[in-house]
């Protein structure tokens, strides 16, 4: 037989898939930049912005908030994660199995989270550079201009991990939708019912300000002041989401 039998490892196939997925999804970063621009426009309405003389644009005034940037990035991460999860039913790669597909998806999501963390800090500068090409003096904000390298690193690190959590949640939901199709919405409904009933039961059985609403979940991470406890919470959450995603993708058939 002239066609040689190939026996590459799963890891090497997963790495080729990772590179290929990044190459074919490069436009995702352009989409993120557009979302950031929208985020800045939303910020301008909540903060103070003005445009004068046709050659001067300034949104750096007093009450500027970066929250819309984070909201847009989170939305982007969820969307990317969901797309990767949902693509499992389409399977763009012939040379693949569930493990390599899962591994490369996770690797790409991690790269996305790292890049998103970085872009959230620096996209303002990038947009300013592009903006300056069209408007003489283009100023968005200067919140990150003089915070120092350690703060940059901290914001990048924490942002990356938070974005990764949202991306992995999107990925898990995408896989579940891809795998269970018509039963997916029933599952969502049941989860909502269990969540609501659970929070009612908890509030009746435990005295004190305990509830299971979304803000409680956010406070669980955001109100944690001890760094290592926070890190443990975040990493365990990511690990749990990875584990659930793998369980969902394991033994999944390719139903193209």
């Amino acid at each position: 037989m002239n066609s040689m039998i190939r026996k590459e490892s799963q890891l090497s196939i997963a790495l080729i898939q990772t590179k290929d997925k990044l190459y074919h999804n490069i436009n995702a970063f352009l989409f993120l930049m557009i979302l950031h621009l929208i985020g800045y426009l939303i910020s301008s309405s909540s903060g103070m912005g003005y445009l004068t003389g046709g050659d001067y644009f300034d949104m750096s005034y007093r009450n500027f908030s970066v929250a819309p940037l984070y909201v847009m990035t989170i939305f982007w991460m969820i969307l990317q994660g969901f797309s990767f999860g949902e693509e499992k039913s389409r399977q763009y790669y012939m040379v693949s199995n569930n493990f390599t597909a899962y591994f490369s998806d996770i690797a790409v999501l991690e790269i996305y989270a790292l890049t998103a963390g970085l872009l959230t800090l620096f996209s303002g500068f990038l947009i300013q550079v592009f903006g300056s090409l069209f408007v003489g003096n283009f100023m968005l904000h200067s919140l990150y201009a003089s915070i120092g390298i350690s703060n940059y690193l901290t914001l990048w690190f924490t942002g990356t991990l938070y974005f990764l959590i949202f991306g992995t949640v999107g990925y898990l939901v995408g896989i579940l939708r891809s795998r269970y199709r018509s039963r997916f919405f029933l599952g969502l409904l049941l989860t909502a019912v269990v969540w609501i009933l659970g929070s009612i039961l908890v509030s009746y059985s435990i005295q004190g300000p305990v509830s299971l609403d979304i803000s409680t979940v956010f406070r669980f991470y955001l109100n944690e002041s001890r760094f290592f406890i926070w890190l443990a919470k975040v990493l365990l959450t990511i690990a749990a989401l990875y584990g659930l995603s793998y369980l969902a993708v394991k033994n999944m058939e390719v139903n193209r």
């Binding site: 190939r6 196939i13 399977q91 763009y92 012939m94 040379v95 199995n97 033994n251 193209r256």
Partner: peptide, 20 residues
């Protein structure tokens, strides 16, 4: 089923092949 050696050595050409 889901075997990476099989995946590398088998190509299935059919109408439902998916591409980016």
């Amino acid at each position: 089923f889901q075997n990476i050696i099989a995946a590398q050595n088998v190509i299935l050409v059919d109408e439902s092949m998916e591409f980016y």
